[in-house]
Design a protein around this nucleic acid. Structure first.
Length: 807
RNA sequence: GCCGAGGUGGCGAAAUUGGUAGACGCGCUAGUCUUAGGAACUAGUGGAGCAAUCCGUGGGAGUUCAAGUCUCCCCCUCGGCACCA
């Protein structure tokens, strides 16, 4: 008997599959139903594939093989998100061009993926730093430009001093750069923006159309941060002069307008500068503004204590309190004065209008501020605990003139109308800043005329190539600025004095549409032909939970924008999404280079075999949970495969028990794969083998078992398939059908409970009638003991499972 | 503080969705074989008890013939957000 030697057979079959080009599919095959199985494409780092990839890529590989056996035409592509900072930083250190490192790393990744038995067609791969791909990234930018979905503006953006580039809001984590952890500052620079906010509502509403994890949907919603409220104008007056200005605020609680006793502007608010001459304590105000600018976002939040400065010499008029309820009728009822105006850093310039009406009686932050500065607190809502500092719930309106007695909800609309305000929605989401002052990214296809006029580079000049004659060292100005070649190229095409855009695009742009390219990866005329668009959208997408905001949000935006332009005809890119959990070390700690506990997938494949590594990753825990990589546990899987191997050399006849178990196993495994419950699918197959070991199985039935094991352990099953006399691959077989009648049990154990406690059990024939079972139960010796001399009040029977006697 | 996920043997985890809690795997114990075993095989393995039986799914209450599962309150762990008006 030859031994199970994973090294030999895995090598053998990987070579064979390559030779047979088994992964190639006919993308235009109309005879089969399509299924688009997608993995999140990796950034090809120098570290190589990590265990997290191993798990999610195996998960998708199993699903792909399963769907294929079920007769679907399955697209299961892979590619590389290869623009980005690590390669550029490496280039700065070593002088090796990013293109070169990237190419090398991609080669490594492909070798590693193949060694795991992952079936991808690398002839059809997408590589975002390849001009064949980024030509279309640029073309899409152009389409967005033509359709007014991208614009340029000078604004304060998040600036990372260490990376020497601006970054998106989404890339700032707790005031720090998500890449390098440097404190983010604000910098005023010109840059390009995608109008993602145009789609804010659709990005929320369409979440109802997808099958995604609940928490991911919630995160998307929170990130967009829709709040319903009103914009209301207040009048600002100077004590000395007649000059009046309007001050617009956003509030979610217009119903509390009568309780607004002061106003707060963000220190950066335009009006502060405008009214400079009217503000009597300008020196103090200016100092506060400068102090605020100096504070980083972190400090602003950490020093929770409210600070602020009143703008002396000016005041605002609460429109609700002016005679006619309109701001332009500024006369106040006799004895009423205007309300004070403050600047304070608890009001953010970037949200809403950068100014608020403060209602201390019903907002905790306003309450805190008002208490500190001794400002009036006026209750206008009845409700809640009177002990509470500020009641922020809904209730009956009081102290609000003709609106008294209304419910808050109703009052919101009426009071807004009364003061000429407007009900509107506000969003936390901002337009997506995509300009990066770095080298290794997709060039923005824009040129400027000598007069500074913006011109989109026409399609005929795409791909607009990333120049190679640059110095990588970041200086805060995009490295492209020192390319002689780029300058000459631009002048040659557009004329003397024309200059190219030097910024490159955020790499999230590359990954926002890559899944649209796979169906037609080498099309040089279109990003994807009409006939190949039939592959879209993605049926199942598997990837890390760290992408619950950015990548998923941006991809969704792209699809919506492209639909609006008429390039696509669906709303959502990923119909079904599942995340894999993190892979931790044996002690449950995160793997990291500094801890020295990083596990190398290739080394594990060498030692235990790809089949064992694959099956173990999926067996150890549910897909979405964390997996501990415990080398002592993987032997369980290895033993299982050895048992399968051993069984294959001892095939005779199937016992009834084995036949029954086989059909149950097919049913369970099929159902579990469909629901991505791989862990229980594998345990079910283990059970089957255990039963076979204590009994016997026929060649035919064993071959059926091999088929359901094949997606998980593609090499060993292929080897055994061959040794059982087949010349065609097991992976071309059809998924076996189970027989419901054979999967049925003929006998059942029925548990007998007395007053809810298990007292005995009976073996019954399937379908044995209830009366007989009841009688048998009541006569049962062990049951008798508990019911003798008592009156039977109730008997409940759950078919084939349980009989509960109440006495 | 807010949002989300979770808490079941020594460990990773199951539980047909209200019906025998701990499947499957690791580990452990005993035995067989062996020069040996960190190999293989067989049996056992939630806790207490000689046993009958009792106790057990973070804690407490409740609904029910029956609760890991449903309801209410509380505690803890992990992830994310953090003055968003």
């Amino acid at each position: 008997m030859k031994k199970y030697d994973h090294k030999k057979i895995e090598k053998k079959w990987q070579d064979q599959w390559k030779k047979d080009n088994v992964v190639k599919i006919d993308k235009d095959d109309q005879s089969k139903e399509k299924f688009y199985m997608l993995d999140m494409f990796p950034y090809p780092s120098g570290e190589g594939l990590h265990m997290g990839h191993t798990e999610s890529y195996t998960a998708s590989d199993v699903f792909y093989r399963f769907k294929k056996m079920q007769g679907f035409n399955v697209l299961h592509p892979q590619g590389f998100d290869s623009f980005g900072l690590p390669a550029e930083n490496y280039a700065i250190k070593t002088g090796i061009h990013p293109a070169e490192t990237t190419q090398k790393n991609i080669g490594n990744y492909i070798v590693q993926m193949k060694s795991l038995g992952l079936n991808y067609d690398f002839d059809e791969m997408v590589n975002s730093s390849d001009s064949e791909y980024y030509k279309w990234t640029q073309w899409l930018f152009g389409e967005f430009f033509k359709n007014n979905l991208v614009y340029k503006k000078t604004s304060k953006i998040n600036w990372c001093e260490s990376c020497q580039t601006g970054i998106a809001n989404e890339q700032v984590l707790g005031g720090e750069c998500e890449r390098c952890g440097t404190q983010i500052s604000q910098k005023e620079i010109p840059g390009w923006f995608f109008k993602i906010t145009d789609f804010a509502d659709a990005l929320i509403e369409d979440l109802d159309k997808v099958d995604w994890p609940e928490h991911t949907i919630k995160n998307q919603r929170n990130w967009i941060g829709k709040s319903e409220g009103a914009e209301i104008n207040f009048l600002v007056k100077s004590q000395k002069s007649k000059v009046k200005s309007k001050l617009k605020v956003f509030t979610t609680r217009p119903d509390t307008l009568f309780g607004a006793t002061y106003m707060v502007l963000a220190p950066e608010h335009k009006l502060v500068e405008e009214l400079k001459g009217k503000i009597e304590n300008w020196e103090e105000v200016e100092k506060y503004i400068i102090d605020t600018q100096k504070k980083s976002e972190m400090d602003r939040v950490e020093g929770k204590e409210k600070t602020g400065v009143q703008l002396l010499g000016i005041f605002a008029i609460n429109p609700a309190l002016s005679k006619a309820g309109k701001t332009d009728k500024e006369d106040l009822p006799a004895g009423e004065a205007g309300i004070p105006i403050f600047i304070a850093d608890y009001v953010l310039s970037g949200y809403g209008t950068g100014a608020i009406m403060a209602v201390p009686a019903h907002d905790e932050r306003d309450y805190e501020f008002a208490t500190k500065f001794g400002l009036e607190i006026k209750e206008v809502i009845l409700g809640g605990d009177t002990e509470e500092k500020a009641y922020s719930g809904n209730g009956k309106i009081i102290n609000s003139g003709q609106f008294n007695g209304l419910d808050s909800e109703e009052a919101k609309e009426k009071i807004t109308e009364f003061v000429g305000g407007e009900l509107i929605n506000n969003y936390r989401l901002r337009d997506w800043s995509i300009s990066r002052q770095r080298y290794w990214g997709c060039p923005i296809p824009i040129v400027y005329s000598p007069e500074g006029e913006v011109k989109l580079i026409p399609k005929e000049y795409l791909p607009w190539l990333l120049p190679t004659d640059v110095d990588f060292k970041p200086t805060g100005i995009s490295p492209l600025a020192d390319s002689k070649e780029l300058k000459e190229r631009t002048e040659k095409i557009f004329g003397e004095g024309w200059v190219p855009e030097y910024d490159t695009m955020d790499t999230f742009v590359d990954s926002s549409w890559y899944f649209l390219r796979y169906p037609d990866a080498h099309n040089d005329n279109e990003f994807c032909s009409e006939t190949r668009k039939k592959w879209l959208p993605v049926n199942l997408y598997i990837g890390g939970a760290e992408h619950t905001y950015m990548h998923l949000l941006f991809s969704r935006f792209f699809v919506k924008a492209m639909k609006q332009i008429g390039l696509l005809d669906f709303d959502e890119p990923f119909l079904k999404l599942r995340h894999q959990g993190m892979v931790l070390d044996g002690e449950g700690k995160k793997m990291s280079k500094s801890k020295g506990n990083v596990v190398n997938p290739t080394e594990m494949v060498e030692r235990f075999g790809a089949d064992s590594v694959r099956a173990y990753m999926l067996f150890a825990a549910p897909l979405e949970d964390e997996v501990l990589w415990n080398e002592n546990n993987i032997v369980g899987i290895y033993r299982f495969l050895e048992k399968v191997w051993a069984v294959s050399e001892n095939l005779t006849e199937s016992s009834d028990e084995v036949i029954n178990s086989l059909h149950k196993t097919i049913r369970k495994v099929e159902n579990d794969i469909e629901n991505l419950r791989y862990n229980t699918a594998i345990s079910e197959m283990m059970k089957f083998i255990n039963i076979v070991k204590s009994s016997s199985v026929s060649k035919q039935d064993f071959k059926i078992f091999l088929k359901i094991l094949a997606p998980f352990a593609p090499h060993i099953t292929e080897e055994l398939w061959e040794s059982l006399g087949h010349t065609d691959s097991i992976h071309l077989e059809k998924w076996p059908e189970y027989n419901e009648a054979l999967a049925k049990d003929e006998k059942h154990i029925v548990v007998i409970q007395v007053n809810g406690k298990v007292r005995s059990e009976l073996e019954i024939e399937d379908g044995e009638d209830e009366e007989t079972i009841k009688k048998r139960a009541l006569d049962d010796e062990k049951v008798q003991k508990w019911i003798v001399g008592k009156e039977t009040k109730k008997i409940i029977y759950i078919k084939n499972k349980l009989l509960s006697i109440v006495v």
